[in-house]
Simulated assay, not measured.
Amino acid sequence: MSQSQLSEPASETDASLNERDIELLRNAPELYHQICNELGKRIIGQRDAIRHLFIALMARGHCLMIGVPGLAKTLLVQSLADILDLDFQRIQFTPDLMPGDITGSEILEEGDDGKRYFRFAKGPLFIQLLLADEINRTPPKTQAALLEAMQEKHITVAGHTHQLQAPFFVLATQNPVEQEGTYTLPEAQLDRFMFNLTIDYPSHEEEVEILLSTTVDRNATLSKLLDADRILALQHAVRQIPVPRSVADYVVHLVQATRPDHPDSPDFIRRYLQWGAGPRASQNLALAGKVIAMLDGRFNVAKEDIIEAAPLVLRHRLLTNFHAEAEGRKVNDLIADLIRHIN
């Protein structure tokens, strides 16, 4: 849908969508198109990943990126930070990484008066866009420190709370192949990630283009298309997009049907799932639907927006059991079956 064809906001949105919000939402599809074009100067392919990262950012969510090494995940995140004009930091998570290494710590210093004082030295979490590389390689205590930052937008050190910068966007990577020396991410932390993104191998044509473009001395300069203030304004505008009651009912019905002990769950969910999604999944589906509607030039959320977001929101929140493993049933297949069943 072109920008000139953008639908007018429904009357029920007039109370929450002001003129500034409407202007931002109208311009968002063209802005996203420009961002994709800029990223295309460095990133070949990965259009789905780019779209999903942008959706999560606009919805104030965090992403877990699953993919083998060498698929340009770090370059993608670095390039996105350049275009959005956000402060960027990469942390390589390792088994010896301690909570203070990412949050910061109190340092004892001597003042001009000869007395000693504690000064808080900020860690790398005090950033706007954070790439947590191989997050499953660090111990649970350090994962918990990151969890607080993701959920609460602040960290606590020595009994003192320190607010993080806004926007605060975490992209964590995980290698799906090499599991030696890793720590399983607890369900509570997985639930804090809005999306679980699968970064796939490039196609033949894309890999040829990657080979040709990366074996010469060329470093494309990217234009800055956004800044922190405009991102915050867009995030606010997105939240003013209404969710019709019928769509909200569909979202809750879909999420509740993932729970094996729920009376509305189908037989295949009862057979193959050990655990389903909680209320945070419903919230994230609705927020993702709002951003997808915005990118399509609409001022209301449709069921199709929820269906697009469902695999990204649900697949890391559903725990399969031994029946699924024995019969080769994957989470993505179960989500697809559930969508067909609920429809």
Score class of each variant (00 low, 15 high):
residue 105 S to N: 09
residue 7 S to E: 14
residue 82 D to K: 04
residue 25 L to Q: 03
residue 88 F to A: 08
residue 81 A to L: 02
residue 68 V to F: 00
residue 113 D to C: 00
residue 7 S to L: 14
residue 40 G to I: 07
residue 44 I to A: 05
residue 111 G to H: 04
residue 79 S to W: 03
residue 25 L to D: 04
residue 10 A to D: 14
residue 18 N to R: 06
residue 35 I to E: 03
residue 68 V to G: 11
residue 117 Y to V: 01
residue 14 D to I: 04
residue 37 N to C: 09
residue 49 A to Y: 06
residue 85 D to L: 01
residue 113 D to Y: 00
residue 111 G to K: 14
residue 85 D to M: 02
residue 95 P to A: 14
residue 87 D to I: 00
residue 71 L to H: 01
residue 57 L to G: 12
residue 35 I to T: 04
residue 13 T to C: 13
residue 112 D to L: 09
residue 115 K to N: 08
residue 112 D to I: 07
residue 50 I to M: 14
residue 13 T to R: 09
residue 67 G to Q: 11
residue 76 L to A: 03
residue 101 D to P: 04
residue 104 G to S: 11
residue 90 R to T: 13
residue 37 N to Y: 05
residue 7 S to W: 10
residue 14 D to V: 07
residue 102 I to C: 02
residue 79 S to E: 09
residue 115 K to Q: 12
residue 45 G to H: 02
residue 18 N to Q: 07
residue 87 D to R: 10
residue 97 L to K: 01
residue 73 K to G: 07
residue 37 N to H: 14
residue 74 T to F: 03
residue 99 P to S: 06
residue 17 L to P: 11
residue 90 R to Y: 08
residue 21 D to T: 05
residue 30 E to Q: 14
residue 61 G to Q: 08
residue 33 H to C: 03
residue 89 Q to T: 15
residue 103 T to E: 11
residue 78 Q to H: 13
residue 74 T to R: 05
residue 64 L to S: 09
residue 46 Q to D: 11
residue 33 H to F: 02
residue 16 S to M: 08
residue 91 I to Y: 11
residue 118 F to Y: 13
residue 37 N to M: 13
residue 59 A to I: 01
residue 87 D to C: 02
residue 92 Q to M: 05
residue 118 F to N: 10
residue 64 L to F: 09
residue 28 A to K: 01
residue 71 L to R: 01
residue 118 F to G: 06
residue 32 Y to W: 10
residue 20 R to T: 14
residue 16 S to I: 11
residue 94 T to V: 12
residue 111 G to S: 15
residue 60 R to T: 15
residue 44 I to Y: 03
residue 114 G to T: 00
residue 21 D to L: 01
residue 11 S to F: 12
residue 79 S to D: 10
residue 51 R to V: 05
residue 109 E to H: 04
residue 27 N to V: 03
residue 38 E to G: 07
residue 101 D to E: 01
residue 92 Q to Y: 07
residue 111 G to Y: 03
residue 84 L to C: 14
residue 52 H to K: 12
residue 80 L to P: 00
residue 80 L to I: 02
residue 95 P to W: 08
residue 106 E to C: 08
residue 52 H to W: 15
residue 73 K to S: 10
residue 53 L to P: 06
residue 111 G to A: 09
residue 30 E to S: 14
residue 28 A to W: 01
residue 20 R to P: 00
residue 102 I to H: 07
residue 73 K to P: 08
residue 103 T to P: 05
residue 56 A to N: 06
residue 31 L to R: 06
residue 26 R to D: 09
residue 59 A to Q: 03
residue 54 F to A: 04
residue 18 N to F: 09
residue 75 L to D: 04
